[in-house]
Design a protein around this nucleic acid. Structure first.
Lengths: 243, 243
DNA sequence: AGACTTTTAAATGTCAGACAAATAAAAATT
DNA sequence: AATTTTTATTTGTCTGACATTTAAAAGTCT
């Protein structure tokens, strides 16, 4: 773990990279305690604030966590799927909000990924996951639900569908796509009729999953996708021409 | 943009979140210059090192970039797909290396995503993308290629396939899955016969894409997946019992 | 002796002030 | 008018200090 003393700028970035490399290479293992800030500053021959900036960079990537007090310090994080989820979601949200990805593009990607999961989910979904989906559909049909709550339940439904594939990598990948779309989805005002239609699709999907009928799940998802895109288009049209 | 002065700990994290929210909400737009560190420290009523730690957190997520000198400062970054790629790859690599994801799980996820793209790619692939794929196949068939170079070409081939879908969100999602697997793939020693088999699959895929035959692409990808998993299993077996 | 309380030391979190280095704009010079 | 020099601004880094948290060690009481 060395840094180049010739480049006086970006010392904290160099130190962060050195520690990052040590973690990736396995030199520092999970839950291992890093040297204290004072020791690190001596080791790298820099001041403590510089070391701290480097550690903050790593903490932002949730590569390390810090703990105060005696026997505290910086510890190598086990990068959990949960931790990776939130990063993935933040990045995806930013990409969608800053790079002006069209709703259609995001929607297409989301359903393409979801259909990929659905085939596996039809084979492997547990009774528990199916029950979760049924429960979410039931919640969606309750009157007096706000649009936000409806959207949140929608996300939970699709998440259960994806989790049914039993592949954490897929779940992780899709979490970004699905949740990043939620702010955009929240802009849609769900009429009673559109809610009814979506619930019908959800019921069809749940039924097909219960029968382990992957073809039926796939076709229903295709229909749901085109319906969702139609809803978004209507919203866009109303914006342009609010009659 | 406010922070809660009641919680004295994690001030830098709070400030980072406040600025992050301002960026996500659009309050700070791309390429806009943030107030100087001195101004921020006054605005948030904290010291400059604390502000700096917050800014380093954001820089680690490439949400901002900093520039020294007069009229320098911190600027809101346009989060490009390129920037997001590398983050996605780093995270995926860490997940695979630290969380002991099995090769099978990663492989399944990768091909599930890739098949999702392939359907779109069959419709939309450009002549250019097809040519790239053909060129990579040609490279793969050249003798004297190292295993690493063969793997790299394999990645390039599949990347062209995914890019053919014309959906940057999908390309971004898959970049992580495909590239994070490369270290694992590099552990496989490709015999002349296995290379031949893989090249045959690639040729079939390219042919099917040329004919815009999505069904054929799909079935070939399924075959390639099972072949890849078989190769990995053989490697694992040889490890256990190096006869 | 054992359980509880107090002290202490170590570590991070924060602050203040200072200087170095880079950089662009303004001023001076040719 | 073009070039060079100066200057002001801003980030990068350093030094030293104090506050806060926390676990372990020391002490105290039953």
């Amino acid at each position: 773990m060395k840094i180049d003393p010739k480049k006086p700028a970006d010392l904290s970035a160099q130190i962060a990279q050195a520690i990052r490399d040590a973690i990736i290479s396995g030199e520092l293992i999970v839950d291992e305690r890093l040297p204290s800030e004072a020791e690190l500053s001596e080791q790298f021959q820099v001041s403590r604030p510089t070391v701290r900036e480097a550690l903050k960079r790593l903490a932002a990537q949730s590569l390390i966590r810090t703990q105060r007090g005696a026997s505290g310090g910086a510890f190598v994080n086990r990068l959990s799927f949960e931790g990776a989820y939130s990063q993935q979601i933040t990045t995806s949200t930013l990409l969608l909000s800053m790079n002006a990805i069209s709703f259609d593009t995001a929607c297409e990607a989301r359903f393409a990924l979801e259909r990929a999961c659905a085939a596996l989910s039809a084979q492997r979904r547990t009774a528990d996951q199916l029950a979760t989906m049924r429960a979410e559909v039931h919640r969606q049909s309750q009157p007096g639900l706000t649009d936000e709550a409806f959207c949140a339940s929608d996300v939970a439904f699709h998440r259960a569908l994806v989790d049914g594939a039993g592949n954490p990598v897929l779940s992780y990948q899709l979490a970004g796509a699905v949740e990043a779309m939620q702010p955009l989805m929240n802009m849609i005002t769900f009429t009673a009729r559109s809610r009814e239609a979506i619930i019908a699709f959800h019921n069809q999907i749940a039924d097909a999953l219960e029968d382990r009928d992957s073809t039926k799940v796939d076709t229903t998802l295709v229909e749901l996708e085109s319906y969702t895109r139609q809803l978004a288009q209507d919203v866009a049209q109303q914006r342009r021409n609010p009659a």
